[in-house]
Simulated assay, not measured.
Amino acid sequence: MNNVKILVAVHKNYEMPQDTNTYIPVFVGKDLHPNVNNTFQGDNTGDNISGKNAHYNELTAIYWAWKNLETTDAIGLVHYRRYFTNGHKKTLDSILSQEDFQKLLKQAPIILPKKRCYYVESNYSHYIHAHHREPLDVTRNIIKKRYPRYLNAFEEVMNARSAHMFNMFVMEKKYFNKYCEWMFTVLKELEDCIDISTYDSYETRVFGFVSELLLDVWIKTNKVSFVETDYTFMEKQNWLEKGSKFLWRKIVNEKK
């Protein structure tokens, strides 16, 4: 793996890594916000779904790379405030380098962030307490009908209490292509099956939310080995606020 490219999904002006040989800032939803930033690579060149960013989140950057980034050995995605790191320092100096990624890819063809654990509930329970239940249930039906080979892994991931989240990964190009082909096909079928016209602006990001749980499903089904590494959220997080929101969503949704 001599050429690893890491997309940095960003939707506003923000400080970016200095290692431009490794990191590519991709302004997501560029079609929707054409005048916000003219420095970063837009997700609206070539074959793209930039116009769907309000519903697909950072997946518009992944789609852009899948269709347009050819000369690379491995492709990954991080976020402008969340990176793969050495330890947990909240500085761009701590993020992984080209050499770091190359070493990890010698161990396995996929690099993932360490799993996020929910402890008190399953991935499915956590999802439906935070979002509308229907899209995830429809996704299961799509997989059962169209991709039955993936159903057992889907059930395992839904029942587990941890997962590789945030759509963060680095993959050898051949695996990246195969994953994108499957994942975007499933999401397109989901898009055709559900009506999100009554969803609020947060919940309309549904396809990005669902995709976070599809990554482990794909890896389990295809039995692709992976290596985990640390990741860090670069800004201070208000854990009291996050915990309060989690409990509120859980209480409210359990009454539905």
Rank of each mutant, 00 (worst) to 15 (best):
R149Q: 10
K90N: 10
N152Y: 10
Y150V: 01
S125D: 14
A65Q: 13
H79E: 07
Y80F: 14
Y118T: 08
Y119V: 12
L104F: 05
L112Y: 11
Y63C: 02
K144G: 03
Y80G: 09
K144E: 14
E58H: 12
T72C: 15
Y56W: 08
D137P: 05
H79W: 11
R133T: 09
A61P: 14
I111L: 05
I95L: 01
H131M: 05
S125V: 00
K67N: 12
N57M: 11
H55R: 10
K144P: 04
E99Q: 10
A74W: 02
I75P: 00
P148C: 04
Y147D: 13
K67R: 15
K103R: 09
Q102I: 14
T85D: 08
Y118D: 12
S97C: 00
A130N: 14
K103N: 08
L59H: 01
N57Q: 13
K103A: 07
Y119C: 01
L112S: 08
T91Q: 10
F154Y: 13
R82K: 09
E70P: 00
L92Y: 03
R146S: 07
A108L: 12
K90C: 08
F84D: 11
T72H: 11
N57P: 06
V78C: 15
I111S: 04
I128N: 10
Y83N: 12
K89I: 09
H79F: 09
I110T: 04
I128P: 08
